[in-house]
Design a binder for these strands. Sequence first.
RNA 1: GCGGGUGUAGUCUAGUGGUUAGGACGGGGGCUUCCCAAGCCUCUGACCCGGGUUCGAAUCCCGGCACCCGCACCA
Length: 564
Amino acid sequence: MQSMNDIKLKILEVTKRRGFYWKSYEIYGGLGGFYDYGPLGASLKDNILQLWKDYFVTKEGFLLLDSPNIGPELLYIASGHAEKFTDYMVKCKKCGHVFRADELLKGHVDNPEKLDAEGLWKNIKEKGIKCPDCGGELTYPEKFHLMFSTRVGMDKNAFLRPETAQGIFINFPIFYRLNREKLPLGVAQIGKGFRNEISPRQGLLRLREFNMAEIEVFIDPQEKFLLGDVRNISLPLLTREGKEYRITVEQAVKMGILSEPMAYFMGKIIIFLEKIGIDIKKVRFRQHSREELAHYSRDTWDCEVLLSYGWVEIIGIADRGDYDLKRHMEYSGKDLRAFRRFKSPKKRKIKRLRARMEILGPLFKNDARKIAEILENMEYEGGNIEILLEDRKIKIPKNAYEVVEIEESVGGERFIPQVIEPSFGIDRILYAILEHSYYERKDSGYKVLKLKPRVAPIKAGIFPLVSKEPLTTKALEILKIIRDSGVSCYYDDSGSIGRRYARADEIGVPFCVTVDYTTEKDNTVTIRERDSTLQKRVRISELPEILELLSDEKINFESLDENV
RNA sequence: GCGGGUGUAGUCUAGUGGUUAGGACGGGGGCUUCCCAAGCCUCUGACCCGGGUUCGAAUCCCGGCACCCGCACCA
């Protein structure tokens, strides 16, 4: 039995040696929190995203967006990140420990998070706040910003996005229209996010530039959200009260632990994780405590996997309510609401105004038309009328309009949709797949990555049994055929056949094709399956199709007929 | 950011002031080889960066960078 720490080191060793990923900028001494994906890693990541898109975009009928990494300052002021992502830190002069200044003032001052550096400093001195660890003097509060800031053009302040989500929110009206004004509406975005972590650690698990795949699902809270085919999926839940459950999606909703959309996406996530090769026995959903909740979130559940580092969050599902759309409405002045149609139009009697142009005209000249328009669109509630036209308050004399009572039919109402956000950390998922795929053969101790065929970066190795003619030429011919058919594969004739199988196992190649002396007689080759090491003999003419089906997991190796 | 530890070929590592820094695995070439890292020959390749101490530094000291563990942080 190997320790968890061993696995961590072995994964690290294999991934670096075989070119999955490595620390960026090593020739310049490295830079913390940045990684390069090499040939295998880039391809693995690609395959994960492909499956993600297939499962969460295509199959759900959601819409894709690809918006910029850099956004204007105002966007992130509106989103709350500019404020919430900045912390003032103080350091103890004696023991060197660092604290958030506002945390230290909690209980001493009301709303300490609203103070600036000067205000915090004043209060620290007045209340005599000392280092909670050793009682030492504290330094002047220093700003620490978790967003990378930059400049656009000469002088426009901008930020690198800390999440791809904001690009989706601000485009809601366009997507709403593209979806023919129907909810629920899901918009998905795959892209990079940037966070200037104080201290990135643990390889791919905490990066400063990372890959994320996010979905914002806009829903009408008055409409029932259907659980569909995930209702019977079993969910491992850990509530903020510390209660553990293993219940179905449907039960979780019935018991009031989860809302329908939250439960639905958890079910989808379980299926997805299993598809890409995560061991779902090592998965749980943990509800955030109140203190943990992000500024925009009403409820959040982290999907965590058990790795050698402990439980690690790989996906977050947040109920963002109407926070984001509301904020962007406030800051942009644009209407980001959806329209809810009533089942039958509501009829009501209201008082409306009819403008008398013969009075308005001479009185307001060029503005008369606009004023008339405003008047005729407003509901009359009695009293004197004063309207706002281009920042001017204008009093309208009583003789300039008539009040008429009409019966109006109202077809529906505008409202701000609620948003559920499943947000996937792709780098963490990739690492989790590697850890959950890694094993060593019982007899030999050789390393194997049991990557699912669909995520495996390379689907097949093509080998001559021994490195001799005519086997080598035949194997190279087959290589070309397989490559032309679109299946990623490679040729290897160095060392013994066993060594080549072992090399392939280590990077998770699911199938190896071997050309042997029977091949020249009847045009057949063997296909070896990685985990069982079993072989089956198939015709070369059928090989491309078989490999394609195996790689796409349309058939599995056990059910493959030997057809010679 | 703090404290502790660490930094030698692609990988794992030996070397604690003194010649051309040693090994294993890997990788390339060759021989051998009829199915799971066999063997032989051969080649390849490293002291994290900068400063200091010293006649001389991979080794000692200082600074930086990075990694690991713990603390803090993780919206």
